[in-house]
């Protein structure tokens, strides 16, 4: 568990990488809303060893971007009420739904 302690000390941020190579860097706190990401980074798996980089080989950049946006949006508004709805393009709906299910967000 050496890596986990290093993780504790080192990074406030994590990187999400899409199947087509886009990288999104966001706050660990924000990303961990997804239980999958949280578990991914909590154990002593390869992701942790590589420095908190999570490859999602079946999520493309467009979807992952929306996911990242949502995570930030969610994090930013976590303690507020009356937040404006997030803009979700209808054509991405289904794919986003599946990603949400996958990530358990």
């Amino acid at each position: 568990m050496a890596s986990s302690s290093q993780k504790q000390g080192s990074s406030k941020y994590v990187t999400l990488i899409s199947s087509d190579g886009f990288e999104f860097v966001l706050l660990r706190e924000a990303a961990c809303v997804s239980k999958a990401i949280k578990k991914m980074l909590a154990g002593s798996f390869l992701e942790t060893a590589r420095g908190d980089r999570c490859h999602f080989e079946e999520i493309n950049g467009i979807v992952l971007e929306k996911v990242a946006e949502y995570l930030c949006y969610n994090h930013k508004n976590r303690n507020r009420e009356d937040v404006p709805d997030m803009d979700i393009p209808p054509e991405l709906c289904l794919e986003l739904l599946m990603a949400a299910d996958y990530l358990d967000t």
């Binding site: 999104f24 079946e58 999520i59 467009i62 209808p90 289904l94 794919e95 599946m98």
Partner: peptide
């Protein structure tokens, strides 16, 4: 990093097959 994709006229795209892993 948001790419230049425009709003695709309200059409819902089916999820790509890749997710299910063909």
């Amino acid at each position: 990093m948001i790419s230049g994709r425009g709003r695709g006229g309200g059409k819902i795209r089916p999820p790509r097959r890749g997710m299910i892993g063909g």
